[in-house]
């Protein structure tokens, strides 16, 4: 592992751009291809790359498994929470029009919140799945 300099340096250069690209995909999803699902997977891919190059022990210090599990649950809560907020404001469940004075603006805020929830869930779940498989030792029969 020590002499794989190209992989280590290459990963170090790539990872920030992968994270930025994930955020671009997330927030540009309204205007072009992209959205919460893709952005969550790309965000998780950065952590998977880090784990593949630097080892699982190092990535767990950056993002503990518990944090990934919490992300998985938090995203669903945000999604459902947006629905309850619209209900509290007098609309139907997930009826974003009531979030702002102008219904079109309300739709904008609602879609933003919902996509954020999807991003966080997908990111947390993908990282947790990777940890679950990579963290297990092989048992020789």
């Amino acid at each position: 592992m020590d002499d794989r300099v190209i992989l280590r340096v290459g990963a170090k250069i790539l990872i920030p751009f992968i994270l930025i690209f994930a955020l671009y995909v997330q927030f540009h999803g309204d205007y072009g291809p992209g959205g919460g699902f893709q952005a969550g997977v790309i965000f998780a891919a950065a952590f998977v790359l880090y784990a593949l190059i630097y080892g699982l022990g190092n990535v767990v210090r950056v993002l503990p498994p518990k944090a990934a599990y919490v992300c998985g649950a938090l995203g669903v809560s945000i999604f459902v929470g947006v629905g309850f907020v619209t209900m509290a404001l007098g609309g139907g469940f997930l009826d974003y029009g009531v979030l702002a004075h102008d219904p079109a603006h309300g739709q904008h805020y609602g879609i933003l919140g919902v996509e954020l929830g999807v991003l966080i869930t997908v990111f947390g779940v993908m990282v947790a799945l990777f940890y679950a498989f990579a963290g297990r030792r092989r048992i020789e029969p």
Binding site: Y31, G34, G35, G36, Y96, Q107, H108
Partner: peptide, 20 residues
């Protein structure tokens, strides 16, 4: 008209029309 300026119809259907 419904969503304001969201050109990607897939996003608006995914998140709003078919949010459930």
């Amino acid at each position: 008209h419904d969503m304001g300026h969201i050109p990607n119809v897939v996003t608006s259907v995914l998140a709003s029309y078919r949010g459930y």
